[in-house]
């Protein structure tokens, strides 16, 4: 599997700045399932098609197995102006967690 450089963009949400998106190769999802808990992300109860994790700061990361779409759901307790920074911090943590598996180019 070749390394990718994921990009973080704003995702759909009724609540401003709450959801952020990046995409991984679908095959990378399996590796993410192993890598994220090691990086402190807590697996949450969720359907098999949609694994999800909670970051140590209380943000959620959802992974779509069939497409590789990933969504960071920033906690609603974070003020709107700080949500982008919170999402970027989670994104960085996820990308770092995937780097040893050679999944990201960072």
């Amino acid at each position: 599997m070749s390394a990718v450089l994921p990009v973080l963009t704003r995702d759909h949400a009724c609540v401003r700045g709450m959801n952020w998106r990046f995409d991984l190769p679908p095959a990378a999802i399996e590796a993410a399932l192993d890598a994220l808990p090691s990086a402190g992300f807590l697996p949450c109860p969720s359907p098999e098609a949609l694994p999800s994790f909670q970051s140590p700061e209380g943000h959620r990361v959802l992974l779509v197995r069939r497409t590789g779409r990933a969504q960071i759901r920033v906690s609603y307790t974070v003020p709107e102006g700080q949500r982008r920074l919170a999402a970027e911090a989670v994104f960085t943590a996820v990308v770092r967690a995937l780097r040893p598996a050679g999944l990201t180019a960072w």
Partner: peptide, 8 residues
């Protein structure tokens, strides 16, 4: 448009 819908 949610990941939930995309996944399910």
């Amino acid at each position: 448009l949610s990941p939930e819908w995309e996944g399910l």
